[in-house]
């Protein structure tokens, strides 16, 4: 039950984009057509699903204060948490590289479509953000970390696909010239965020 709650919460209530604005840059840049944004969304889900548990293990057994005690008595007081930024980003960069190679090998069509965005996932704030939230909220177990990663990814996917669908429609309407493109995208996104706020009332 607990993990189902976490799952739903990380998709809707703590939605990466509408509640924390994470991954906005690629969100605004890629959400022009539904197809490419769905591709990017899937890649983000996968990368989050892998990186959050890996970073959880890293945090649990290396970085946390006292985490190194499995090495022996003398390491009980070691606190490496100041290294967490650099360790997390290294893991993320490595896994993104790996995903890139796998996609290139097994799904060349998708690789061509995603183009430059695949390597850029490494600097997508949502990925790093999920790992940092995992650390700062103190998610207790490997299973829950996986669920949290998966849920956040799905939330991001839903957000970008919805946004792309709306923007496809907006191209047919008369938007004031200065608002065209990014301006209207920001305001649309704000309105969508208001809609997503209605999930906040749900107590899980």
């Amino acid at each position: 039950m607990e993990s189902l709650n976490l799952f739903i919460k990380s998709i809707f209530i703590d939605n990466m984009i509408f509640a924390y604005f994470l991954g906005m840059c690629s969100f605004l840049a890629v959400s022009k057509t539904v197809k490419t944004s769905a591709g990017l969304g899937l890649a983000v889900i996968f990368v989050l699903f892998v990186t959050v548990p890996v970073n959880f293990l890293l945090n649990e057994y290396i970085l946390k204060p006292g985490a190194l005690s499995w090495l022996g008595e003398g390491f009980k007081d070691v606190d490496l948490s100041f290294l967490s930024f650099i360790m997390f980003i290294a893991v993320i960069a490595a896994i993104v590289q790996l995903v890139e190679m796998i996609v290139e090998r097994f799904a060349p069509a998708l690789y061509g479509q995603l183009g430059i965005f695949l390597p850029l996932i490494a600097v997508n704030c949502a990925i790093m953000g999920a790992s940092l939230f995992m650390q700062s909220r103190g998610i207790p177990s490997l299973g829950e970390a996986t669920i949290f990663g998966l849920g956040s990814g799905i939330g991001w996917f839903i957000a970008i696909v919805l946004m792309a669908a709306i923007r496809e429609k907006i191209t047919y309407s008369h938007v004031p010239a200065p608002l065209k493109g990014v301006g209207i995208a920001f305001i649309t996104c704000g309105l969508m965020a208001i809609a997503f706020m209605s999930f906040m009332g749900i107590k899980l």
């Binding site: 509408f18 604005f21 608002l179 301006g183 920001f186 305001i187 309105l191 965020a193």
Partner: peptide
């Protein structure tokens, strides 16, 4: 949070 998005949208509007 939504107001931050809308405000930046407005700033872009004014600037452009």
């Amino acid at each position: 949070p939504p107001m931050a998005l809308i405000l930046i949208g407005m700033i872009i509007w004014i600037q452009r």
